[in-house]
Design a protein around this nucleic acid. Structure first.
Lengths: 194, 194
DNA sequence: AGCCGCTCTTGTCAAATGGCAAGAATTTTA
DNA sequence: TAAAATTCTTGCCATTTGACAAGAGCGGCT
């Protein structure tokens, strides 16, 4: 079990040197999450900045009507953590769950923050990660505000087709902001189109 | 024209001492934006981290169908800048426009970044700002995915009533992800309800 | 005052989406 | 393997929302 892909994540950002990346990666600990298991649950403080090396996860919140709303899907190669809870050290409103068996590398807030304060380059990487998440969220807001459910479905299908291999329909539906019934119909309609 | 409110913004976060806040604030320059004027336009790189002391602004993008989609409203006391463009030094997809005459305090990326690298406390403030924006966006995604247009309208009315004093309906409608026609109807229905 | 442009409302009709429920298909569990 | 649980599809019908167009209201400008 090597940290190659973790190191590659840092290096490919062009913000961290290979030497630094190796040093940083050594502070991450190997971690597995069983299928169905939670990396983070409601009411806990997120304390893992987790690089997903293999597997598939999703994050979701429960709205006031007690419905699950999927807030994100994570494929291998991505960083998985709940921004607000992790950085503000506050109780999480969200859950993060493994949809398949997962393995990867985790570091605690304390250690990560120490790295941020001592390594300017890695700090830039951290900011870059945050900003990237920010822009993805904003793109989603714009999409939800101005596209039809079918367009959003088509976009997701094209951008992240693997989601459809790992996540049940109702989970994807709540991510798209529609019911599973509607998603089922949209899907049918799309397949028969051209 | 004093920097009091700017200093207060830093101090009230509990992350920056009063002394540091004063020193930081001195690097911001006074800036006014006329009604209708743009603080940032499409295709430029956002280079102002702007504290809005007085006035009201909005940010919007133009989607592929050439419709304006309002991404944010800013009331006095808030920081105004386009995260992606400012931090990634990339071309902006968004516009930021003054809906009323505005004044406040601005600092360039270079100067801000320098402060971040030299003052750990201010760095924390910067991260805090980013994380706060992140969680607001996420709340909006969840709202868009699981609430009806009327609920979103009611929430906005309660959370940011001043928006309705400064922004035209169609702008608010695109923020809520509906047409101005629908917003007009929802509004009518709500007033006659209870 | 009178004209113009913009905003907001309203009517009509169509399309999209949701709620509910039944049943088929699939997966999980025992 | 059988039973149970879950997921997915589909029908029916109600509700929400959108597209389009007309007209009212309002403020700015000359």
């Amino acid at each position: 079990m090597s940290r190659e892909r973790l190191i590659a994540l840092f290096v490919q950002s062009n913000l961290v040197s290979h030497i630094d990346a190796e040093e940083i990666a050594l502070l991450f600990e190997h971690r597995t999450v069983q299928k169905g298991e939670f990396l983070l649950t409601n009411k806990k403080i997120c304390n893992e900045y987790f690089f997903l090396e293999e597997g598939f996860m999703r994050a979701f919140a429960i709205n006031p009507q007690y419905q699950e709303v999927t807030t994100a899907f994570y494929a291998s190669g991505q960083l998985v953590f709940e921004v607000q809870s992790f950085f503000q050290r506050s109780v999480s409103k969200e859950f993060i769950q493994a949809l398949t068996p997962c393995k990867g590398w985790a570091i605690s807030f304390e250690q990560l923050n120490h790295l941020f304060h001592t390594m300017p380059a890695f700090r830039e990487f951290g900011r870059h990660t945050l900003v990237k998440g920010f822009m993805q969220l904003k793109a989603r807001v714009i999409s939800m505000a101005s596209e039809t459910a079918e367009q959003r479905y088509q976009n997701l299908l094209q951008a992240q087709p693997t989601i459809f291999e790992h996540a049940p329909l109702k989970t994807i539906a709540s991510y798209l902001g529609i019911t599973d019934t509607s998603l089922s119909r949209i899907r049918k309609q799309v397949t028969k189109k051209p």
